[in-house]
């Protein structure tokens, strides 16, 4: 069972997660017009920028985050932004979309100039997230856990970050037990996705480089 404090933490993070979304106008743009590769690149870049802004808004609502050292806040966001974006995009790809939307989005990403060797692991990740059939609460908590990773480069006060991450991990663990009593491995599987995210993050810099070149 979740304690009152844990339930409050869950509600708070979930509410913040639901509130901060990429503006619908921008999301619509992705589906509507036809673009050249160059315009596609710009649009996806604009989308990524918006994503980061939304992520910062979400993060500052995670209880305790704003009490961290200012430079540590930046180090955490810088270290996790790409992973949080992959998680959010995975959710978009997993959700039931109106007829044809997933195909249009996939086509757009495939025609953005990113080389195939980076695209395949990304779509594999989306698929592996899809298989978990995650609830909105799990997405919100996992995103918060990703952001509050104490081992990011340049974080000075790792213990302060750990103190924020641990209660969120415990809420997720209990939530998984409650929601998936038949799947004792569910929590471990969610944490396993964090490892996959690290790999995607690692490749991201190379991916950007290849994207720029082409």
């Amino acid at each position: 069972v979740l304690s009152q404090d844990q339930q409050a933490l869950l509600n708070y993070i979930l509410e913040a997660y639901n509130k901060h979304r990429v503006p619908p106008d921008m999301a619509k743009k992705l589906l509507q017009e036809q673009f050249s590769t160059e315009e596609n690149f710009l649009l996806l870049t604009e989308m990524a920028t918006s994503h980061v802004q939304v992520l910062v808004e979400f993060t500052k609502n995670i209880p305790g985050f704003q009490s961290l050292d200012h430079e540590d806040q930046i180090a955490l966001l810088k270290g996790s932004a790409v992973e949080a974006m992959f998680l959010r995009s995975a959710q978009v790809f997993t959700r039931k979309q109106p007829q044809g939307h997933t195909e249009v989005l996939e086509e757009r990403i495939r025609k953005s100039g990113i080389s195939e060797e980076y695209i395949t692991p990304m779509f594999n990740f989306y698929k592996s997230i899809g298989e978990l059939q995650m609830l909105q609460e799990e997405h919100a908590l996992l995103t918060a856990i990703t952001i509050l990773s104490p081992d990011r480069p340049y974080v000075k006060d790792q213990q302060a970050v750990e103190r924020l991450q641990e209660p969120v991990l415990e809420v997720l663990r209990r939530f998984c037990k409650l929601q998936h009593p038949q799947e004792p491995q569910h929590f471990a599987r969610l944490l396993g996705r964090l490892t996959e995210l690290r790999t995607l993050n690692h490749h991201h810099a190379e991916m950007l480089e290849s994207w720029r070149t082409s």
Binding site: T45, T49, V52, Q53, H70
Partner: peptide, 21 residues
């Protein structure tokens, strides 16, 4: 344009916007 900003700049600006509020 936003597309020319680095990740850290975008984060700093977004956090600063928060402080101005």
């Amino acid at each position: 344009p936003a597309s020319n900003l680095g990740l850290e700049d975008i984060i700093r600006k977004a956090l600063m916007g928060n402080m101005e509020e």
